[in-house]
Nucleic acid binder design. Sequence first.
DNA 1: CATGAATGAGTGTTCATTCAT
DNA 2: CATGAATGAACACTCATTCAT
Lengths: 209, 209, 209, 209
Amino acid sequence: MTPSLTEKSRELAASVMKDGISQAALEVLKQHGYEGLTMDRVAEVAGVAKGSIYHYFRNKQELVTHVFEQIIEPAIQAGEEIVQKASPALQKLEAMVRMWLEYFSQHRSLFDFLFRDPAVRELCFTSQRAKHGLAIERFRAIVQQGIEEGVFRSLEPVVVAEMIIGALQFVIERQLETGESRPIDETVQRLLDVFVHGIGRSEAQAATG
Amino acid sequence: MTPSLTEKSRELAASVMKDGISQAALEVLKQHGYEGLTMDRVAEVAGVAKGSIYHYFRNKQELVTHVFEQIIEPAIQAGEEIVQKASPALQKLEAMVRMWLEYFSQHRSLFDFLFRDPAVRELCFTSQRAKHGLAIERFRAIVQQGIEEGVFRSLEPVVVAEMIIGALQFVIERQLETGESRPIDETVQRLLDVFVHGIGRSEAQAATG
Amino acid sequence: MTPSLTEKSRELAASVMKDGISQAALEVLKQHGYEGLTMDRVAEVAGVAKGSIYHYFRNKQELVTHVFEQIIEPAIQAGEEIVQKASPALQKLEAMVRMWLEYFSQHRSLFDFLFRDPAVRELCFTSQRAKHGLAIERFRAIVQQGIEEGVFRSLEPVVVAEMIIGALQFVIERQLETGESRPIDETVQRLLDVFVHGIGRSEAQAATG
Amino acid sequence: MTPSLTEKSRELAASVMKDGISQAALEVLKQHGYEGLTMDRVAEVAGVAKGSIYHYFRNKQELVTHVFEQIIEPAIQAGEEIVQKASPALQKLEAMVRMWLEYFSQHRSLFDFLFRDPAVRELCFTSQRAKHGLAIERFRAIVQQGIEEGVFRSLEPVVVAEMIIGALQFVIERQLETGESRPIDETVQRLLDVFVHGIGRSEAQAATG
DNA sequence: CATGAATGAGTGTTCATTCAT
DNA sequence: CATGAATGAACACTCATTCAT
């Protein structure tokens, strides 16, 4: 059992180091941008020798990936909670949109950097359908639930999920670019309004429908 | 008149070279990504000496910018034509969505790279409201027209424009990532359907409205 | 005889071009310094094609050398005149010191650049004992004359000439560096005073002597 | 105490490397001149990788400056000692002239290169009145002392100092250029003779002579 | 395990020189 | 002769990665 204990403390120490380095990398990312993310700087900020980083991360890419995962974790958790709740789809949708809006407005600048690494993108979206793919999956589930509840029309839920996320991301992105920051509540309402009721006028809709 | 002729052929040769280098850069971009875009590679692919590139582009950034402009130009033109037509907003919207859909599906992979260059982003979005900002402006104008025609509800047109573009981009992005390629017609219909009618069911809408 | 005429006009044209290019190089030198002296810039300022420079100067070094010769020529001439005059050595010395002082204060900044090229140095001082060596020779001749006239002590004239030139150059150099510009008359007097009478006090001299 | 030991050996190793690189740079300077001083060559001669140089010197300029300081340091020290001594001005002057003469004859070729770097010049003369400015200051102090002792005439000491240094430098320079090497003792005597007694035969001098 | 010195391939950019037109 | 596009070697500097201690 002793070895198990030693092993555990070893593991603990290792994970502490990993986190420390990861945090340092995040700091560097914030201050110097993606192109300014050098192992030297990470080592300096983390207060460890450059070589030590390679004990915990095989290479720079792995470090970047880990940083990304650290950042996105809270959103994953928050999303999970929202989905798990026993609320109507519309409420879940609103909660989800608000959560992502808040999340993106906090971290968008970092995403600019993180999404830059093709390897990270690969990881996030495609390969293991992880993280972002997960976001889609969750919106999809909510849309599906809405359809089943009879409040949403019977549309392809994945595509709808994608549209919502895309719209949401881009709206945030624009706000960051233009510098203006509208209250999140307002943005949430607008997004929901458009997606739920459409931009078409009811009479016209009645006519077309 | 002779100098005019010589001058012309010189200009022609110069523009041929510029295009050649630009094409080479595009090729490198496709194969190696933005981080892999080195002047050496461009020179090699273009089949010219590295130094020669600097006869046509002051520096790397200028080359990148030029490549970007070359790519986006056709879309700008097509957008202009659509906007100028005297058609109802709904038709324009459809044409615009289809155009961008076609355009993005052709170039999305490049945008991943191009949008990554801060200088390019600057150019595109912020500084001179050029290119992408222009796209927003055009969608905005169409939405505005729709509102005036009485077919669209009176929503903030800029935000709606942003949502549509965001949704559109992301849907394409996803298709590229998942590898599946749905017919563009179908995607256009889905986007319009969602944005015009919303995802909510009519009764619910009637109830809310 | 016709070919002779053609030949002459050809030669004339060539020398005109050489001078034009040389002047352009001088201009570039003044504006951009030695490190900024590029063939491109020279061609641009001269208003000729870069390639044309190589018709008149085998390479950059030859051009630089030519520029140097152009600059130093007036001083050579002025020196010649002073030496040729039938005046007492002391008067010649004063005239010479004044001339060089004026000359250096006008061109010192250029010398900083020109003396930088080892090839130029080679040319100027060593190889053909040209130019600068010539200056030494002239000061030497004046000192010699002074000895013969009985107004100067019988010292090794070359070394004395070197000392005077060295002192003269350095005093100017310092003025340029410190930025202060004392009147030339004053500097001339000081130099002559020190070199003619020495810094030692008469009694002390008598004591030492 | 162990860390202190490790630290010390580390520091030692670092200073050994710095010196090695510095020496290599000196070697390159001697063989290829200032324009031929490339980091590649320094690395090759030093037997280290190019990148390693940048562990010890932030950039080329810093390396050059360091080389310069290494070379000039001994002269600074020797000058300090001479000035500090409690000897009559005339003796100090002789010692100083001899010291510089010896020093310059050893390093003049390097100065050709070193003085060429604007940054080095800046450092030496202007900015902190360091090094060369220091030399002037010291000669000035000696002249001043001589005036106070009553052995030198009451002349502007700074200008006299400049003249002596200029003459001294130029005489050495000439010897290097012409290749002839006169005994230093002789040169010292000639310089002092000229500067103390002047070249003119005055009545007083005539009386002594 | 921790270290940080050492590495060396790679980066964008410059510029004297050549040569086909 | 005049041209200027093309060249390519050279430059200072960076940085992910390795490895002896």
